[in-house]
Each structure stands twice: as structure tokens, then as C-alpha cells.
Amino acid sequence: MEAVPLNFVRAVDLKIDGKDVRVPEGTTLLQACKSVGIDTPTLCYLENLTPVNVCRVCVVEVENSRVLVPACSRVAEPGMVVQTDSERVRHSRKLVFELLGSSVDLSTAEPTFLADLERYAAEPDRFDTGDAHGHGAKATVKQPVKIDNDLYVRDYSKCVLCYKCVEACGTDAQNTFAIAVAGRGFNASIATEFDTPLPDSACVYCGNCIGVCPTGALMFKSEHDMREAGTWDESKQTVTDTICPYCGVGCTLQLHVQDNSIVRVTSPHDHDVTEGHLCIKGRFGWQFVQNR
């Protein structure tokens, strides 16, 4: 008898930028693009989180679709004809970067994000045109940094509202639900209930929100303090993988070390024990080795 593979997966044929591409059924356009070496910018997408497709920087043009579609969550269909670098795509990506840049402080954003801004020749400053009488002056999300505990700070001036922290705090990882998107429209923000300080909230300081934040809006207090003092220097930092010293789960920690001190702890997103997530002890409980 012939063996029948149990996990039979259909192949889907489509065209991306004129190239014939074959992918397994269920593949997203983002993965399909990646499979043929097309680099698609993303912001709210992360392998270990459910795609929320809110940032819209990964949009692509699909033939016969009235509007552009988000590559991160749209599944490839047979016969699809996809353009990833058309005029419309370039325009939308550029504008999304410009809109974010015009309202959010991107000074500590991930380098890839800043590179994408350049790649699409985004000029966020062109929205800075309030007239002499103040008519139509530009709104931004600028606000004071929230420092309400010793472990991490929240600077929502840097928040692009990518929803990643909410997902990591919620059903995608921690299931603590300490934060959610509150308000609406341009005034929407990430908040605890009634914006109460973190120590009064449900927060358990796993720091998984920091782990997924792409802009540094959520930051270790240690990093924040060093940046304030002007001593933060990533060029002097090393990153070493090791295993958490606490319970027996065996979470991989990436120790970011500067001047023989741990300054930040992350975990690799592609590790199937942690998927990038830690608890308070793994994330923040390292100080004991440097109370020297």
C-alpha cells in the first residue's frame, strides 16, 4: 500500500512582481514575499503575535482589489497577481511612515524602522506647516514620560500604537490584560484602566510589552536612566545568550551587557520555550549579580 502523507498541504501558485511563486496553502503574502527574497517593511507584525494589520506599512497591491491589502495577514490565493513596489504601494508606505514620523518621537525606534523611513524617502516634516495664526498647527502625541515604578518606563510620546504590547500582555502571551487601547482616533492610546499607575494596575512586570515594543516607548528603567545620563552606548554592548537562573522552565535570556553590567534582558522570539517572553524574575531579577 502506498503511504499517504497525513499532512497534505495544497500548493498555491501566484505571481509576485512578475515572478511565479509557489507556496503552501495558508501562507501569507508576507511569507510568500520573503520566500522569494522580497523585503517587505513591517511594524505591527511580529512572528510570535497574532497579526493585527493596523500599521499598514506592509500593504501590497493585488490585482482586482479596490484597495491595497496588508501582506502580513492576507493569505495567498491561487492566481493572485501581487505588486510590492508599485507607485500606489510606494506612496502608501511612504505616507504611513511620514504620518508616524509627523506625530511620534522616533528617536529610539528600531534601526530597521528608521531605515525603512529612508528607503521610502519619507519626509515627516512636510506636515509641519502651521500658519502664522496657528491655524492647523500640527498635532502630535507628545506627553510626559510615565515613571511610576523602578523596573520600566512608558514614554507614549514614542508610541506608534502598533498594539504589540497589548497583544503580549493579552492572549498572545501573558494573559494579564493590564493594558488595552483606550480612547478613540488620534486620541487613542495604550492605557491601564482610568490610566491608573502601573503599581495599582494588573501589571505583573513580565516586561513582555517591552520585549515587543518597536520604538522604545516601553523601556527598561536601567536603559532610560542611562540614556538620560548620556551613558547608553549600544556600540559598547555585547549580547550573550544564557539560561535564566530561577525556576526550572529554562528560559533563554539574552543579556545585554555594557561595561560589565547587564543593562537589559531580552529573549529570542524564535525560541520555542519562551517565544521571546519572560517573567519578572527573568526580565528584571539579575541585579543580584552586580550588587558587587
Binding site: 504611513v96 500640527k138 500604537l161
Partner: peptide
């Protein structure tokens, strides 16, 4: 005012449109 705030083009685009119209 009515934008839910979820996606960038609408959340920020609508306010920039309003600002530009004011100008």
C-alpha cells in the same frame, strides 16, 4: 473625531487632512 484610531492612514491622516483644510 470618528476614526477608531486603529490604522495609521486614518488615525493620523484624518487629523492631518483637517489641519491642512484649516490652513
Amino acid at each position: 473625531d470618528e476614526s477608531c484610531g486603529q490604522c495609521v492612514p486614518c488615525r493620523i491622516g484624518t487629523i492631518r487632512q483637517e489641519e491642512a483644510l484649516h490652513r
